[in-house]
Each structure stands twice: as structure tokens, then as C-alpha cells.
Amino acid sequence: MDSNLLKVFVAVAKQKSISLAAQTLGFTQSNVTLRIKQLEKTLGYDLFHRVPKGVILTEAGVTLLPMAEEIVQKVENAIIQMKNSTHQRLLRIGTSQANATIRLLPFIEKLQQDFPDIHFELYANGTPLVLEQLLNYKLDIAFITGDPEHKDIMVLNQFDDDLYMIEPKNRAYPNTLIGYREKSTHFDFLKAYEEAEGNTHYKTMILENYEVMLGCVKAGMGKAYLSKKIIDKFGYEKSLKLTKLPQNACDVTCLVCRKDNVPFIAEYLKALS
């Protein structure tokens, strides 16, 4: 069975639309339709029902999807591994948003200087989603908040972070917790800390911009939990109340990889400071 046909099938299943899948894949809509028909002919089953807003999987399509996703992923991983078989040609880097702000650019600049032949791809999101991408072989290395303590993950390096709960200075403010993302290790810790202190009726505010978060705290809109480096970077260290919370997993950033997908430059990464 042609894995390229399965790749098209997976794209259509995820997008629930032939036209959207065609855009994602860079194919024409007629090309995608043809490939789906080829796959259906090979299998002897219809894989999609047409509906007014696109397509939905048939029972046979539902059965095929997880197997197709696994095959497509393994083929993509094999291609990347073969490209990297003698030396690192591609390094896919994941990072939590806080680490992207604090240390990613200097890290990339140093890598580019020391390894000019490596092509880099970046992915930034909350730590839970970055870990998910790493475990699914979508990333080679990742900066994450805390030690994952996962059986399939190797810690290559570790960096200390200095985090504080930040509040407005000398003014009352509503019971609102401000986070960068809903799925964020820092935000999860702040919510857990507040609940342990008996604060269970707070509201939340998500602002995907650290400077805006800091400005909102200063304006008296709530409290947040951020790295001192981010606070200093935007010049808010003297205009906010900073409180050091009990030591926790958020105080450490780990550079990690999968144990079965260790990059060629692992020793170099372990020596970074």
C-alpha cells in the first residue's frame, strides 16, 4: 500500500474537508480526490461520506485512521532518521513559550554558529503540548518546564529559573489569575498554589503576550506567575510586588529528547551552560 495515499487520507480525515486537505498538502483538490479514490479501490471500502460542510469518515475510515496515522508517522520518522544517519542535518526544536522568550534565540544563534550545516525547525507551545510532540517523534529536542520523569525521555541539560508571583503594588485587585496559556505548567502551578491556600473561587484571564500580562498586573487586573528574567526584560521589576513561592518543579527548565531518538550533537547540548 502506498504510504503517500495514506498521508492524503489522514490529511482529509483531520481537516474533514478535501479542499482544506489539498491546501495543507499543497495539492490540487482533484489530485486529492483521485488519491482517495485510489486508496478506496485498493482497500475495497468507501472511506468517507460526503456531507454539506465537507466529509466524515465511514466505519471503514474510522477503523483505518489510527493505523494510517501510525504508518505515516513511521515513514516520516524513517526519512528524517536516514537524512540524519551520518550527521545531524535537521534538528526540530520545541520550546515552552517562557523558554522561547528567555533563552531560545541565544541558543539558536550559538547552534547556527557552531553547526552552520544543520537546518533548524521550531515549535513553541505550552509544555504539555511540546512534550506530546516530542513523544510523537515530531520534535528532536525540547525545552520544557520541570523534569518530565518519563520513561521514554532523556534529560540532556538542566537550567535553573527564578520565578515569582507578581501582584500590583499597593492597590487592591480582583481575584483573577492571569496566564499566558490555559495549558501552561506555570499557570497550572499558580492555580494549584492558590487552591492549596484556600482560594477556589478565582477567575482566570489568558493573555498570550508577556508584556501585556505584566501591564495588566500593574494595572490591578490580577496576579500572575512569571520568570524574573521575563519581568526584568520588560522593565517591570520595580513596579510590581514580587513574592517568591515555595520551590517547585517550575523552577527548573530541562532540555530533553527521546531515549530512542538522541541527536548526534547530544554531548554538545549536555555541555551548554
Rank of each mutant, 00 (worst) to 15 (best):
E197A: 15
E197L: 15
N199Q: 13
N199D: 13
N199P: 05
T200R: 09
H201D: 15
K203L: 15
T204D: 07
T204Y: 04
M205P: 06
M205W: 11
M205H: 13
I206P: 01
I206N: 03
L207S: 10
L207K: 11
L207D: 05
E208Q: 15
E208Y: 08
N209F: 04
Y210W: 03
E211I: 10
E211V: 10
E211T: 10
M213A: 03
M213W: 00
M213C: 12
L214Y: 03
L214G: 05
G215R: 06
C216W: 03
V217K: 06
K218L: 09
K218G: 05
A219D: 11
G220P: 06
M221C: 09
M221V: 07
M221F: 09
M221K: 11
M221I: 08
G222D: 02
G222S: 04
A224P: 01
A224K: 01
Y225H: 08
Y225A: 04
L226S: 08
L226G: 05
K228E: 14
K228T: 10
K229V: 04
K229I: 02
K229F: 01
I230P: 00
K233P: 01
K233M: 11
K233S: 06
F234K: 00
G235S: 09
G235C: 09
Y236Q: 06
E237A: 15
K238I: 04
S239W: 08
L240Y: 05
L240R: 03
L242F: 06
L242Y: 03
T243F: 05
T243S: 11
P246E: 13
Q247T: 14
N248F: 03
N248K: 06
N248R: 11
A249L: 14
C250I: 06
D251W: 02
D251N: 13
D251H: 10
V252R: 13
V252L: 13
T253G: 00
T253S: 04
C254W: 00
V256W: 00
C257I: 07
C257V: 08
C257H: 01
C257L: 07
R258W: 01
R258T: 08
R258L: 14
K259H: 05
D260N: 12
D260V: 06
N261Q: 14
N261S: 14
N261Y: 07
V262K: 09
V262W: 02
V262H: 05
V262T: 13
